[in-house]
Design a binder for these strands. Structure first.
Lengths: 155, 155
DNA sequence: CTCCTAAATAAGTTTATTCTTATTTAAGAT
DNA sequence: ATCTTAAATAAGAATAAACTTATTTAGGAG
């Protein structure tokens, strides 16, 4: 589903397409619910018994950093979960058990607060985080891509 | 500063006031920037050399769960940071280096996006999470407080 | 003040995640 | 197809955070 788009995005950003990456993207696309990293790892191990957890974490982080996947920080003992970022939405999270619901849209609005209330959910707070790259990290990153694009110029 | 309010809130919710808790609250109130758990631990160890990191984590989590402290998930390799929840605000976070800026207000609005742009920050995504207690966790929690029953505030 | 008990703690263990390093590999160039 | 090299990987070490359990303690009752 998203597979092709994800692969294309990786290529466009200068990343290599490895069997492990394909498997991770496939696992994400097939997963019914936002899975944990460990669940993705377990699934892929059926096909690639030698894949290391580090590879799964590393690539999930990459997909998050490229904006294709959203990492849901459950704000509880529960480990985070990963979800394809389409369609864009946010979450209602229980601090105690880590269960969560999907919300619609981007705002702390009446509709979402009502949705929370209807589920018997007591909201004690919310967090809005814009994430991306600060000026210097962005420059370092573009430096890297540029160097790649223009061949090897060593200092 | 917030010390008194925090202690009062803990009492009102039926929690005991231990020297460790006082020290953690003090350390938070005195910290100039949102500190890491490890930094809080180090600071308190000067006074209480035997305090365990678990106690720090446990109590920070408690303060977050009670809505007095906000845990900033830096969405990067960087560990999270803890900040007194007053005044209420949100954050702009770099995925690469973990640096962050404080934002004003609660919304993904023009003002905040402009503030990001002015800093040379490239926003690749945002997350909005409402957190609190789901129905069953809330019931379990109230059950606990009720059972206690001897507290000041019976309702 | 002393006693009592649930809550809180310290210490040690476990799990999740990240880092380090040596090896392998994707993909562009020849 | 073969060569080259930076990027990606696996494995194991290191770190952060949470859990388990035995012990201590805050704070209410007598």
């Amino acid at each position: 589903m998203y597979d092709k788009f994800f692969i294309q995005q990786l290529k466009q950003n200068g990343y290599k397409i490895t069997p492990q990456r394909r498997a991770i993207i496939e696992a994400l696309a097939e997963a019914p619910l936002a899975p944990k990293a460990s669940e993705i790892w377990e699934k892929i191990r059926q096909k690639y018994p030698d894949i290391s957890p580090d590879t799964v974490y590393r690539n999930l982080t990459l997909l998050v950093d490229l904006g294709m996947v959203q990492q849901i920080y459950l704000r509880s003992k529960e480990t985070s979960r990963f979800e394809v970022n389409i369609p864009h939405h946010h979450h209602l999270i229980c601090l105690k058990c880590g269960c969560y619901y999907c919300l619609e849209g981007c705002l702390v609005n009446e509709q979402n607060l009502k949705a929370a209330k209807q589920r018997g959910f007591t909201v004690i707070g919310h967090a809005l985080e814009l994430y991306g790259y600060c000026l210097s990290c962005k420059e370092v990153r573009e430096e890297g891509l540029k160097r790649e694009g223009k061949g090897k110029n060593e200092s």
